[in-house]
């Protein structure tokens, strides 16, 4: 083998655990697979005969659909396991549910769960690949990877590298698994990261991650290459984190007026779903700096890559 394959993991649980080489391996694989979605036959046989289960304990449309399509484009069979119609609503535990699914002969479980660490626990107890599709406020590795992929695409057009970037992650950092996955991946690849949000949602303790923390969005507008706007997660915010939606929007919302003070080539990201008019205005979300829909299409390629790397075949006999 003249190439140096760099992926040996059966699971994708966190980006914290990945090396920068492993992150790049996913991005390179995703780049190679992106072409598949442009064909008239949008399918490759790489995962023929494999079975993938979507096990979502939290609501999701985009991630679940994206994983489903990704598995189908790789020719795997997909089972959607919906919690509201399952035995979980009769009181079955996560582990019992997962074990009985595995007993039917599956190759990968894609899990979303409200508890941080659930995928990790599961990976130690079942004999199949486990892919984290978001666990509590811990990590959302495929979102982090697709954000990175989108940034790398933009870098290429601008003649830059990810390590040249200054990325602002704005909003509800404390409750955001997207923020954590972004943070790990970006710092591993050498980008500069600034976290922005109200003190209640963006505690200064995050400086321990080796990033900057600020509560003044306006102060960094002119310096950043990428602004990743997070959704205000009302379902996770337990106390009064900010006085009013209008006040939040005024200090931390991305609008045209703020965008004008940014660099001309700034890239705007949002993991979705958006609260239009709250953290981001429609004009910005649908504007020319926005890569929000590119993120969604890139997400498909990234998830195809993750499935291929985690459950695809091993090394080949001829180079």
């Amino acid at each position: 083998m003249t190439q140096t394959p760099t992926w040996t993991r059966p699971h994708l649980l966190t980006l914290e655990a990945l090396s920068s080489q492993e992150i790049m391996a996913v991005l390179d694989t995703a780049e190679a697979l992106k072409e598949v979605s442009t064909r008239s036959i949008k399918k490759v046989p790489a995962l023929r005969g494999k079975v993938v289960v979507n096990l979502f304990f939290e609501d999701s449309t985009r991630t679940r659909t994206s994983f489903r399509l990704a598995a189908q484009r790789m020719s795997a069979d997909v089972v959607d396991f919906s919690v509201s119609t399952s035995s979980v609503s009769k009181g079955e535990t996560l582990i019992d549910t997962a074990r009985s699914i595995v007993a039917m002969g599956v190759d990968a479980i894609i899990i979303r769960h409200r508890s941080s660490g659930a995928p990790e626990v599961l990976s130690r107890l079942v004999q199949c690949s486990v892919i984290n599709a978001g666990d509590g406020s811990h990590e959302h590795p495929t979102q982090g990877l697709l954000d990175l992929f989108t940034m790398r695409e933009a870098c290429r057009q601008r003649g830059k590298k990810i390590s040249d970037l200054h990325v602002a992650i704005v909003g509800d950092i404390a409750n955001s698994r997207v923020a954590r996955s972004n943070l790990w991946a970006l710092t591993k690849l050498g980008a500069k990261v600034t976290l922005v949000g109200p003190t209640t949602l963006c505690p200064s303790a995050f400086a321990e991650f080796g990033v900057q923390v600020t509560h003044d969005f306006d102060s960094i507008l002119g310096e950043v290459d990428v602004i990743n706007m997070l959704r205000v997660q009302f379902e996770r915010i337990t106390s009064a984190a900010f006085p009013s939606v209008r006040e939040y929007s005024r200090y931390f919302g991305l609008n045209d007026e703020r965008l004008k003070r940014c660099r001309a080539d700034v890239l705007v990201l949002h993991p979705g779903p958006m609260n239009r008019g709250l953290e981001i205005t429609s004009a910005v979300a649908d504007g020319e700096k926005s890569a929000i829909l590119r993120q969604v299409s890139n997400g498909l390629a990234v998830r195809m890559a993750v499935l291929y790397l985690c459950i695809g075949a091993g090394q080949f006999s001829e180079s």
Partner: peptide, 23 residues
């Protein structure tokens, strides 16, 4: 042509080849 996604000459080893893409 990248044939990685179509190959069948696999050794059961968990070190994966990174595809290069078809152009």
């Amino acid at each position: 042509l990248d044939i990685t996604m179509y190959r069948d000459d696999v050794v059961g080893n968990r070190s994966i080849i990174i595809p290069m893409g078809t152009e």
